[in-house]
Design a protein around this nucleic acid. Structure first.
Ligand code: ZN
Ligand code: ZN
Ligand code: ZN
Ligand code: ZN
Lengths: 167, 167
DNA sequence: TCATTACATGTTATAACATAACACACTAAC
DNA sequence: GTTAGTGTGTTATGTTATAACATGTAATGA
């Protein structure tokens, strides 16, 4: 096999994200999913998802809310929280606990326990899939525990920022 | 070698915690650490730690605050947050992000990236050490990222609660 | 046809969590 | 005895999240 993967050298997690494609794919994926599951991708839900996928970075609920307001929707908190919770339930959005923020999933097709890698300096956030995270759960010690949800966030400094560190 | 470990069979993470010993050890450990590092284990700091280690379960900052008040300390929010932050810095307390709560470390001697296992039903929380968590980081994909801090929380249902599930 | 149900959104009010900014006391160092 | 560092106290405010209730709309099916 040994087929050379595109971007093999630039597989650093903060690079290699073709967001143009990502954006389009994501919209298509959510549309398909909602049809298949007979859910309503209402204007509000679509807008919230678009807001999050637009720059593909974590946004606070109140930031989302503000953008909703500018787009003509109500901007009272429950509006944002409800839709965000809904999108989270269906795997299109994740909450980044360390930032109290919400981010569009990078690959909703994978059912996953994603890892988020967060640079404290440039504040970039990358979602790393289960298979690639190096995470290997469950182990014997937690075999008796049924994992339903994970929060895995690695905070630190990316190589770009480290090289630029002054101190 | 093959020396049989104590509690080998009861190594389920929610069991096998001798809290009597844990409590005493923890106090001794924090005292030693503070002396060694020339830090002040003031009455306030000691009390906050005691509050957290007492029942050894996660408490919200405002719960800690209330207990501080009852013990004769000030109960304005910054008091709790400052001391909690301080204890976190020195590894004696962790924040459980998923619960907005604070918990005494189960083993401050280990420098660690702990995993928290949280039963959503009985709300028990267990801290699993790095070596035992099955976590295996960094992996090739995140080699260029310098991890400074981790948040790893596994939420689900423990075997005890699962067996008792009605639905 | 007209209740019943389910669902999506809207609104008000409030709860829960966290920090900024400043004040004061104590100690150690110079 | 002034200065700097540290620890605690206080007031006010900022940020994040939810409870409770109201309205609108569409599908179901007596
Ligand atoms: Zn994802
Ligand atoms: Zn960076
Ligand atoms: Zn710990
Ligand atoms: Zn349980």
């Amino acid at each position: 096999m040994k087929k050379k993967k595109k971007n093999e050298n630039s597989s650093k997690i903060f690079l290699g994200h073709d967001h143009g494609a990502c954006f389009g794919d994501a919209i298509t994926q959510i549309e398909d999913y909602f049809i298949q599951k007979k859910l309503q991708l209402t204007p509000l839900r679509r807008k919230v998802f678009e807001i999050l996928i637009e720059d593909h970075k974590p946004l606070g609920a109140y930031e989302v809310l503000e953008k909703l307001g500018k787009a003509g929707f109500s901007s009272s908190p429950p509006i944002a929280y409800r839709v965000l919770d809904f999108l989270i339930e269906h795997g299109f959005v994740h909450k980044v606990q360390g930032l109290n923020a919400f981010i569009a999933c990078s690959n909703p097709k994978h059912s996953h326990f994603p890892t988020f890698v967060i640079c404290r300096k440039c504040e970039k956030v990358a979602e790393v899939s289960e298979e690639k995270s190096g995470l290997n759960l469950p182990n014997p010690e937690i075999t008796n525990f049924k994992i339903e949800k994970t929060t895995i966030e690695l905070t630190g400094i990316c190589s770009t920022c480290e090289n630029a560190e002054i101190r």
